[in-house]
Write a protein that binds this DNA or RNA. Sequence first.
DNA 1: CGACAAAGTTTGATGAGTCAAACTAGAGAG
DNA 2: CTCTCTAGTTTGACTCATCAAACTTTGTCG
Lengths: 221, 221
Amino acid sequence: MASEAVENYLKAIDALAHESPTGEAGMKRLATVVGVTTGTATSMCKKLAAARLVKYERFGGISLTAKGQAAARDILRRHRLIETFLVETLKLDWSVVHAEAERLEHAISPVVLEALDRHLGHPSVDPHGDPIPDGAGAVGETSGRALGEFEAGSRVRIVRVSDQEKGFLEFVARHGLKPGTAAVVNQVDRAAQAIRVTPDGLATVSMGFGVAAKIMAESRG
Amino acid sequence: MASEAVENYLKAIDALAHESPTGEAGMKRLATVVGVTTGTATSMCKKLAAARLVKYERFGGISLTAKGQAAARDILRRHRLIETFLVETLKLDWSVVHAEAERLEHAISPVVLEALDRHLGHPSVDPHGDPIPDGAGAVGETSGRALGEFEAGSRVRIVRVSDQEKGFLEFVARHGLKPGTAAVVNQVDRAAQAIRVTPDGLATVSMGFGVAAKIMAESRG
DNA sequence: CGACAAAGTTTGATGAGTCAAACTAGAGAG
DNA sequence: CTCTCTAGTTTGACTCATCAAACTTTGTCG
């Protein structure tokens, strides 16, 4: 198995590549995400390239090889199953489970992981609505559009939140906007860069486009 | 928090000190248990002494300070709660959980640990019958005598097995001698260094004194 | 006592992962 | 076309945990 450090780099490269249009990660961002200096990130990328886990050329972008992708998906599976377990079984607050899973994901063995999966009934998404890769590494499609992209008056169901930042998650939970919740998009004010949403049976919430972009929903007839 | 390596040394010193009449661990045994050379163990002991976790003098025995004991009990609590969880919640075979817990115990945070404790209903012993230290570090008394010390004909209840070796645990499970089981000690043959035991409703088992010394029981009327 | 084995210690080196700081490539502004 | 800024790279050093091998202590047995 890859070391803890290697796993963290792979996970970060995977995430950055997914959110970038070019499908490649930049060294500066990578270093920031992993929490090291750019020099450290550069030398680690060389090692990862030598191990055929990433594609890397001097001053070029960084991306995962097939082998690296497989490893990243495995880490993602561990991370998301652990998060699900922490929320479902141990009843921990979903705003803290990301950090906890970050530590545990490196220590859990395949045997324990599969037992966890069984115990949880083979869930397909984690508490944030992110898909859990299956044992073979296949990841379900991420569905839904950002709340800010709906028309005023749309009836929606929230399916996913795409940020693990504690403050954001607490905001979402406080206003009852967790995945699974039905809601109505009352207003989309392009000039004010803000929207108003009413989750079923709860108070109406206002939020800026920045936040609305991180809450994904699908239309509900 | 102490590093993973440090935690392993503390755990090993604690275990060795407990099983030694002098209450101190020897360097050779310590190195073997931790899985390093004696040179490595010596230098680590110096570091631990500098951190006031162990008492150590050149060519003298090694023992834990109060601070080291507290740390060791904390690790033991994590280890045993995790083992209990793996058996009780995830239904893993008790002969493998020791190794699994060994890895997870270093990654679990206080928040997750206490949630686990709550989920399990604050158990006082782990699946092997070993006491689980409470949050304050207090450890219950280990009760019971070795099976080999009973008189022939004693009706007993098995309370603990004091070895984590896979083959031994499988032997115990195969013959239904897990903690909690009621049994009768049929015969204690001092000359043959062997005993015969019949667990309630199961077949009679023979075992040498060596094995019998690792199965602890208490009298049952 | 003296010799020897076993236990313990020291030393020098290694690999992983990291940082700070000096340096280089490339892209956009004037 | 050059200047400058930013991203990226290189280098040298450091810490942690480790090993192999040379060396020292201690205790035991003849």
